[in-house]
Simulated assay, not measured.
Amino acid sequence: MSSVLKTFVVEDDSEQLATLKQIITNHIMINDFDMELTLATGQAQTLLDYVQSHESVEGLYFLDIEYPGQDLNGLSLATKIREADVNAKIVFVSTHSEMAFLTFERRIEPLDFIVKDLGQDTVKAKVETDIRVAYERYTKQGATSKAMFSYSKGGQLFNVPLEQVLFIETGTSRNKLVLHLLDRIVQYNGKISDETVAHPELFRVHKSFLVNPQMLVRIDKQHQLGYFENGETVDIAIRKMHDLVALIKQSDLSVTMD
């Protein structure tokens, strides 16, 4: 998940587009939300092109129902957005209140449906409320989503929080790995080179060891050892020591070095 919630607007009426832009940017600035108005346009296809050309977009989208003269209407656009951004917060701002039921038929799951005819003050208040609700859900989603480590054993996939992983070492037999967790040790089939690629958050300190830098508590430079809170240690290759120390300093980790 990115640190900034991206916000998008598609409104083909230039005056209404300008009004929505002002409401959104002002509310973000006043509340100091980690949000940005990424794209505001009158063309539905422009937004779709953006979403489909950027990976892992998580956004708040303000859409109309109809875009006369365009290939995409708001419902089709929302459906395609939902396919690309499963966590999309979609708000319809439209005069077509009679079309609201179609958003349920198509399983778009909108955050809100704002009727323009309610008046500018009411529309403004509802847009601001939707921004706050979307931002609150976005931040809670980020707080509850944990980085996970996955491994396969006996044909079954297991997931453990990355914060429980200390290190991985090569086993005594070919293509065997030993996963050291906070509360247990697990053996499974695999190659340490593959795990290095699959889990860039881990660091290869030695041909036989892949560590979670977040879990290190001490580095002994003289004896080239890394220590964990439970007393376990790993060897650190001379050529890897400099990069590991640099990573620890860059990440501002609480690791004692001697």
Rank of each mutant, 00 (worst) to 15 (best):
D12G: 01
N26W: 00
V234D: 08
N87Q: 10
V165F: 12
M215R: 13
L20I: 05
R204G: 09
D121G: 02
Q214P: 00
A134I: 04
E98H: 04
T233N: 08
V86M: 13
S152G: 02
Q224G: 02
L177H: 03
I114V: 12
T129W: 01
M215K: 14
A84K: 15
D130T: 01
F33T: 02
Y227C: 12
G119P: 01
E15Y: 01
Q224R: 15
F209L: 14
S3W: 00
I219D: 04
F167N: 02
G190Q: 07
A18Q: 04
L77E: 09
E66D: 14
L60S: 13
D85Y: 11
G119Q: 02
N230M: 07
G155V: 05
Y135V: 10
L77T: 12
N26Y: 00
K249I: 03
L225W: 03
I168L: 15
D252H: 11
K80R: 15
N31K: 13
E163P: 00
A246W: 00
A88V: 05
E58I: 15
P161D: 13
L118Q: 15
E128C: 12
Q187V: 12
L247R: 11
S145T: 15
K249L: 11
Q16Y: 05
R137S: 10
N31F: 01
I114E: 04
T172N: 11
K124M: 03
F158G: 08
K21T: 11
L20A: 11
F104P: 00
N230W: 03
K146C: 08
Q222K: 15
Q70P: 04
S152Y: 04
L179H: 02
H199I: 06
R239C: 09
L75Q: 03
V211H: 05
Y61L: 04
V245C: 08
K191Q: 12
A100V: 10
N189D: 03
S2M: 09
Q164C: 08
R204C: 06
E83D: 08
L210Q: 10
V4K: 02
V197H: 06
E169D: 07
F92I: 08
L77R: 03
G69F: 12
S173F: 05
L5S: 08
A134L: 02
G74Q: 04
H199E: 10
R137T: 06
I114A: 06
D183S: 13
S145K: 13
T139I: 13
F149S: 04
E136F: 02
L102S: 08
